[in-house]
């Protein structure tokens, strides 16, 4: 195994460049090093001006998403050796405006997220103590609750690229996380946003969001499932008198 690998890192310094340029760095190739470790090496020893986001280094915080050799990945969970002999091309996540180097602006998602009301909605007063739930009921929504807001799914989605108004995979999966929770009563409050043209119906099932998701959330599945729910509701609204719905 060669002892170094070349990383081609996209640099964008507003005021200095009109569009990103690639800069090559040779970094040690170690078995236990992730792409993020390579970047940290560059920042600590070669070029302190390189900007990128990271925190936990263990696939939990969701802040280190990048495009590595064309695919959206968590840079802390992607090993350099998998790209040997290199080069490894590191770019910011696609479909988001680049602030600087590898840092993107995810404000669009942050603005959309509250529109699906991702919290428990109840009509009654909270009980003394906790709401009870069986393990089976937990399983109904558990995988949708694993989302770490890493935005890999938005980066992988061509529909979001073409139609930025699309509510998007993670936000819809998070809506389903609450819709399918036995303690929640807010499904009707989420319906207008989810079943709008920018909601589930914008999705044409490319499926790349679920492929990209590092947490097995399966946002594509969440969306298709809601399509069926929305269609059933539309049919009921059409066929049944108001009182019987």
């Amino acid at each position: 195994m060669a002892d170094t690998i070349t990383m081609q890192v996209a640099r964008y310094r507003p005021g200095q460049e009109a569009e990103p340029v690639f800069q090559s760095y040779d970094v040690p190739l170690r078995k236990e090093w992730a792409v993020l470790d390579g970047l940290n090496h560059i920042k600590d020893h070669v070029d302190g001006t390189l900007s990128y986001r990271w925190s936990c280094r263990m696939g939990i915080c969701g802040s280190c998403g990048m495009t590595v050799n064309g695919s959206p990945v968590l840079s802390c969970a992607t090993f350099l050796t998998d790209y040997a002999p290199g080069p490894v091309r590191v770019e910011p996540l696609r479909n988001f405006p680049v602030v600087r180097d590898l840092v993107v602006d995810i404000g669009d998602f942050m603005a959309k997220l509250p529109s699906v009301k991702p919290w428990l909605i109840r009509d009654d007063e909270p009980p003394e103590g906790e709401y009870l739930q069986t393990p089976d009921e937990l399983d109904d929504y558990k995988k949708f609750s694993m989302c770490i807001n890493c935005m890999l799914c938005y980066s992988a989605c061509p529909v979001y690229a073409l139609d930025p108004a699309f509510v998007g995979p993670a936000a819809i999966a998070l809506a389903q996380r609450y819709n399918l929770d036995s303690r929640d009563e807010g499904a009707a409050d989420r319906r207008d946003v989810l079943s709008s043209a920018e909601g589930v119906w914008a999705c044409t099932f490319v499926g790349e969001c679920s492929t990209a998701c590092p947490k097995g959330v399966d946002p594509a599945g969440a969306i298709q499932r809601y399509k069926l729910t929305a269609a059933t509701h539309a049919l009921k609204d059409f066929l049944l008198p108001r009182g019987a719905r």
Binding site: P14, R94, V98, D105, V206
Partner: peptide, 26 residues
Amino acid sequence: MTYVKPISTLWWLRRPSYFLFALREL
């Protein structure tokens, strides 16, 4: 001052799954 990458006209050739999606739309 952020940079927004333009979408190439041939984006649907970038990945097999994108291509399959384009065929399905067609």
